[in-house]
Design a protein around this nucleic acid. Structure first.
Ligand SMILES: [Mn+2]
Ligand SMILES: [Mn+2]
Ligand SMILES: [Zn+2]
Ligand SMILES: [Zn+2]
Lengths: 146, 146
DNA sequence: TAGTTTATGATATTCATTTTCAATTGTCAA
DNA sequence: TTGACAATTGAAAATGAATATCATAAACTA
């Protein structure tokens, strides 16, 4: 079963229809898997394929996709929600954000086992997920600084 | 030199005055060091001591305090900015957020050395700071679940 | 098909935050 | 002390992302 089929199932399981609008929004997100698009950016891309779509539909659909686990909502502290396709990983991957050029780099692999163990033990806190961002300078910007 | 003296210096270094309004806002934040207050919450507490203050002044002052490194801006994904006194630690501490009761618990100690080393090596990314949140269930809520 | 539910688009509304602007306060040289 | 001049403030308006409303349009069901 391919990716789109899986998403179709997730929708139908909960009694939602795969409308043209939802399909176009899904396509845009899938065509930009390496990006972290904001709602408005998604709206602009979607309108190129389906100009009649309303902004509210985009917001509604992103909310729905998030509930269904199709998409993951991100916050890069720039005052707007951003979204990426839900990767098939246990925990959300980390993001490295360049303070100079704004580039967002992904870091796969938790490497948080020690920390999570310490938290579960010392704080008696059961961890379900995490959200990790690193701020600094990307390789390109570091070279420029020399 | 005590804490308030340090903050006074930070202000004067950059040519800012310690007005009554700024002093009251600082007091409220210092009296609530264990909390993570939102701008509106700070505004409400400040008004108890200084009812004439304007909301814009609170927002302006929090922005200023953030620039000066007096205060740290937090985002707990509840649609508002939150602030806490800047701790004297190299990196920002971690926050554990309970998905049931909303409690915010602090976790001191990075325990991110391995991860940061891996990032610097594999991504050639120079890390200046990080932002780490864990979501799950706090000890109180875990007990209730039994 | 007729009736019911679901989804949509245009528009209005909400809410945190920022901006504007006139009035107030502080600074400092004469 | 006085009088510029700059910094700060409060009230009110503006902004902008996100959500709610509501009438219309599709999709499904018996
Ligand atoms: Mn990502
Ligand atoms: Mn904290
Ligand atoms: Zn960069
Ligand atoms: Zn709890």
């Amino acid at each position: 079963m391919n990716e789109v089929e899986k998403f179709k199932e997730k929708l139908k399981d909960k009694g939602y229809k795969l409308t043209t609008q939802r399909r176009v929004i899904l396509d845009v997100i899938m065509e930009n898997r390496e990006k972290h698009l904001s709602s408005e950016e998604i709206y602009d891309l979607v309108r190129q394929k389906y100009p009649e779509i309303g902004l509210a539909t985009v917001y509604r659909t992103l909310l729905l996709f998030e509930e269904l686990g199709i998409v993951y909502k991100l916050n890069f502290d720039d005052g707007r929600n951003r979204y990426e396709l839900y990767h098939n990983e246990v925990h959300q991957h980390h993001h490295l954000i360049c303070l100079k050029c704004g580039a967002v780099i992904e870091m796969e692999g938790d490497l948080l086992e020690d920390l999570e163990k310490a938290i579960e033990e010392t704080k008696d806190f059961e961890i379900l997920d995490h959200n990790v961002k690193f701020f600094g300078y990307c390789s390109k910007c570091r070279k420029k600084n020399d």
